[in-house]
C-alpha cells in the first residue's frame, strides 16, 4: 500500500549556526498508511512534538522531506496552507486556543478559512460537534462557560470540521480524569471508524496507545526506535524500558511471570489478553 504520509530522512535542528543548536529529530523515516490509527509514543523531549509539526507544514525540515500522497509538501511553499487543511493537527491542551464568542463559531474557524460558507459550513460544524459528543444546544454557548473537558472537545471539533485526511492528536487525554479520558478516546475511535480517515494518536501513556492503535511508533532520542503492531512493539519490553518508557502494567506482569519460568507470551498488553493466555495455560496444566 502507498503511504499517505512519508517522512523521508527528516532532520530538524533548532538554532542552527548558534551555540545552542540542537537536533530535535534526526534522520527520521516513517510511513503512515491511509486509514490506520497510528500510535506515537515517546517521553518528553523525544522529538515527537517536533515531528508532528512537520507533518502539516508548521515547521520546515532542515534536512529530508515530508511526502503527502507521494509529493513533497514544500515543493510549492506558497500552497503550504492547503496541507494544513488536509493534515489536521490538534495540539496539547488545545482548549487554550479557543477565542470566538460561541462554540459554533469557534469550530467554524478552520472550515471558514478554507472558504466554506452558509449551509455547508453549518453542516460541517454540527457534524464535527457530533463526532466529539457535544450536544447541538452547546453550539450557541460561549466556549468559556464550558467545563475543561468540554472545551477540549470543542477544540478537537474545530480541527475535525476541516475534514482532514489525516487527524493528528497530541496527548488528547492529558489531564482528564479516567472517565473523561475513556469517553474522549471512544469518540476518537468512532470518528476513525465512521470516516475511515487516518488518525495519529500521540501519547506518553503506553496503556492508551496499546488499547487504541493499529500500529505504534516509538520515539526516543530524536529518532524512531521501534515501529510495528502493538504485539511486535511490546515484545521488545526491555528496549522500551531502556529508552525510559514504562510498558503497560499488564505487560509487566506477563514479563515478570516469564522471568519466573511461566511459559507465557510476553507480547501481551491488555487485561483481556493476559486473562485468556493464563486461562489457556491453566487448562494445559502448566506448572509454575
Amino acid at each position: 500500500m502507498e503511504p499517505i504520509i512519508r517522512v523521508d530522512h527528516l532532520t530538524h535542528t533548532y538554532g542552527q549556526g548558534t551555540p545552542f543548536c540542537r537536533s530535535a529529530v534526526k534522520d527520521v523515516c516513517l510511513d503512515i498508511y491511509p486509514g490506520e490509527l497510528l500510535g506515537m509514543i515517546g517521553h518528553t523531549g523525544s522529538g515527537k512534538s517536533t515531528l508532528i509539526q512537520h507533518l502539516n507544514g508548521l515547521l520546515k525540515p532542515t534536512g529530508g522531506k515530508i511526502l503527502f500522497h507521494g509529493r513533497d509538501i514544500w515543493a510549492e511553499p506558497g500552497r503550504i496552507r492547503d496541507i494544513r487543511f488536509k493534515v489536521g493537527l490538534v495540539f496539547q491542551y488545545p482548549e487554550y486556543q479557543l477565542f470566538e464568542e460561541t462554540v459554533g463559531k469557534d469550530i467554524a474557524f478552520g472550515p471558514r478559512n478554507m472558504g466554506l460558507e452558509g449551509d455547508a459550513l453549518r453542516e460541517r460544524v454540527e457534524e464535527a460537534a457530533g463526532f466529539v459528543g457535544l450536544s447541538p444546544d452547546l453550539l450557541d454557548k460561549s466556549p468559556f462557560e464550558l467545563s475543561g473537558g468540554q472545551k477540549r472537545r470543542v477544540a478537537i471539533a474545530g480541527v475535525i470540521a476541516m475534514m482532514p485526511e489525516v487527524l493528528i492528536l497530541d496527548e488528547p487525554s492529558a489531564g482528564l480524569d479516567p472517565a473523561g479520558r475513556d469517553s474522549l478516546l471512544n469518540n476518537i475511535r468512532s470518528y476513525h471508524a465512521a470516516t475511515g480517515s487516518t488518525v495519529v494518536l500521540v501519547s506518553h501513556s503506553m496503556d492508551e496507545v496499546a488499547e487504541n492503535a493499529d500500529r505504534i511508533a516509538v520515539l526516543a532520542d530524536a529518532g524512531v526506535v521501534l515501529c510495528g503492531t502493538p504485539r511486535e512493539v511490546f515484545s521488545h519490553g526491555e528496549t522500551l524500558e531502556a529508552v525510559g518508557l514504562t510498558v503497560p502494567q499488564v505487560t509487566k506482569v506477563a514479563m515478570e511471570l516469564r522471568r519466573r519460568g511461566v511459559a507465557i507470551d510476553s507480547a501481551i498488553y491488555t487485561v483481556e489478553d493476559l486473562r485468556r493466555a493464563l486461562d489457556a495455560l491453566r487448562e494445559g496444566g502448566a506448572p509454575c
Binding site: 494544513r84 489536521g88 495540539f91 486556543q97 474557524f109 478559512n113 480541527v159
Partner: peptide, 13 residues
Amino acid sequence: DKIMSAQKARGAD
C-alpha cells in the same frame, strides 16, 4: 508561539 501554531494549523494566516 504555541497559540500561533495552533491557529495556523486551523488555516489562520
